[in-house]
Write a protein that binds this DNA or RNA. Structure first.
Lengths: 144, 144
DNA sequence: CTGGATCCGTAACGATACTG
DNA sequence: CAGTATCGTTACGGATCCAG
């Protein structure tokens, strides 16, 4: 997701959005913006990893190790986005091999709570979602 | 969300780095799948609208009205996804002008709870996120 | 070691037109 | 009314190279 603006295409190009249209669900909706943020592939994982380490700091390379599969670019982009949001703090040791430490801010820690609730829901109910998927496929097959 | 729920690069890291820290790093991780789902542009909005109407049913056109800006295609895609997940139920009146009613399933209603928690966090803290954004821009400007 | 810059594939998203 | 089909746009996410 674009860290600095609204997500993907959010409007018709011709749509005039120069101000509040009074829409209940416009792109400025806080919930929309939050979901855009945590909906990105690595953001919620980063928050979780940093929350688990909290209040300890974690270095860039260590974060990459703990977030298996993430590329340097995406880790960088993700952390920058979180830092701009004020959810993650960044501390640089200006040594010759630079060391950069990250940790959740108090604000980031508060986000961990509803995020944990989502994880809990997922672990509790995704099996049922899988069963629903199977039923859907059976229905589709029977109507072939 | 991810470009695809299955397009994740099969980086195939050593299995031993997972496990002890939980399954959030697994491509099959339920949390990953849930975030992919609710991270889509209209899903969480649809859940909210249907939850607000619950236990009343809502028709397709009415849903479109309440979700300002959504196209027929995206509403259809969103509802189909939710239906496949077992979060939304669909009832068809096979009249000459067909009428289709949607409503949250009990499973969908349970999802509304953590989703509402997220919304609450957003409305409570996104202003602070905005302030962090402004600070970031000031920092960037001062370092020019 | 950290992470910026760039190319690119892929898929979410949107608009429009069409069907029963 | 309630979708489906098709097409074009956008931009996320991955790989690679480069820089401090």
């Amino acid at each position: 997701m674009t860290p600095s603006s609204t997500s993907r295409a959010s409007h018709s190009p011709n749509d005039d959005i120069d101000g509040a249209r009074g829409d209940l669900f416009d792109p400025q909706c806080p919930t929309r913006r939050l979901l855009d943020r945590i909906g990105t592939k690595w953001t919620s994982m980063a928050v979780k990893v940093l929350a688990e380490a909290s209040p300890e700091e974690v270095r860039f390379a260590e974060l990459q190790r703990r977030m298996a599969g993430i590329s340097q670019k995406m880790l960088s982009v993700t952390l920058q986005g979180l830092a701009r949001d004020g959810l993650v703090g960044r501390r640089v040791e200006a040594t010759v091999p630079p060391r950069v430490y990250y940790r959740l801010t108090p604000l980031g820690l508060t986000l961990e709570e509803p995020l944990a609730a989502l994880r809990e829901w997922a672990e509790e109910h995704m099996a049922e979602v899988d069963r629903a998927h199977r039923r859907s496929r059976e229905d589709a097959a029977s109507s072939d």
